[in-house]
Design a protein around this nucleic acid. Sequence first.
DNA 1: TTTTGCTCTTGACAAAAATCAAGAAATCAT
DNA 2: ATGATTTCTTGATTTTTGTCAAGAGCAAAA
Lengths: 190, 190
Amino acid sequence: MTELEQYIKSYFGIVAIDDLKTIVTLFKTTTIKRGEFLLKSGKYCNKLSFVQSGLLRMFATIDDKEVTQWISTNGYFATDLSSFIFEKPSRWTIQALVDTELYSITKEDYKKIGNFVPKWNELEKLFLVRCFTILEDRVFSHLSMTAEERYNLFFENNKELFNQVPLHYIASMLGMTPETFSRIRKKQLL
Amino acid sequence: MTELEQYIKSYFGIVAIDDLKTIVTLFKTTTIKRGEFLLKSGKYCNKLSFVQSGLLRMFATIDDKEVTQWISTNGYFATDLSSFIFEKPSRWTIQALVDTELYSITKEDYKKIGNFVPKWNELEKLFLVRCFTILEDRVFSHLSMTAEERYNLFFENNKELFNQVPLHYIASMLGMTPETFSRIRKKQLL
DNA sequence: TTTTGCTCTTGACAAAAATCAAGAAATCAT
DNA sequence: ATGATTTCTTGATTTTTGTCAAGAGCAAAA
């Protein structure tokens, strides 16, 4: 199974191998260089991408401060779902933190998948509910956990990321300042 | 247009009137009394409900504390989406805060909608992305706003709720203690 | 009515997290 | 390699929020 086939499977669930191959043919590989933008806030998000290698950061700018909503690494997707589906301006900017290889599908091709894969609607639904659940977990973590607990939880599940991206982006994504992040980190390293 | 038709429209977007009428026939009205449970954590969520009148609270219990994730009022839906779609045990408990009238559809009937309404898949997708976006906003509010700012934003959009439910539930839903909530509230009332 | 329980507020205090400022360490561009 | 940036850490301090405890206000139940 190719990488992309695996990524898709992990988001969309069990997919018949023939369907999987059909879907994959609609994706194109593209590259974006460190610092370049996959999407800019206010623009229309017209493709859905999976990260093959590299790192993307999704953020919004508010009062001159950048708030990092998500960091996409190898195997994750990166898209403003709301903009992509509703075809409205994006609220997020997506920027490459390092040179990044992507598998991307255009909105146009995305719409066609249903013609080739009869079960597509069901798969897409599972995908969306999975995305929903991830956010539900995140909201819950803010209602019920301290900064330190959020740090620990995230660290356990994303150890690799801590050597790969500037830590203040992770701090922002977890809802704390870089200083607080650094102090918690020190405590855990002892 | 009936109430339920309006509710569905507000979540699913533009729906042809005939389709709307077809969908509505699959819902049944039920009543649940104050204190009773629509769903218990660990059980399977086998129906999707809209609140016609009354109030529901969705929460999880963690370390003897109840964390309120959402309060559903008139026109809102109330369901553990993840449990409903994936048919797995629910993480949430949903309880009526007062006697509550519901429009409910069973999972079984829900699955049939597609047979009667060809565009159903598209509508369902829009519904899910809308739910996703609501949570995306909530996560963002925790990354970029203080407790006071979250209070004000929520108050502006949900003034009525403040006379209808015990305020400590709203406090929990906004991620703060009842005491903090009370102090912020006092400040805003002056 | 009285009692009971729940909700909300308030104060005093403690803890958590943000801010400000400085400097060290690492990385990047030339 | 050098200098320029950016990232990360640390300390001092302030602000925000949580905790604990007590009491007031209300509403439901006896």
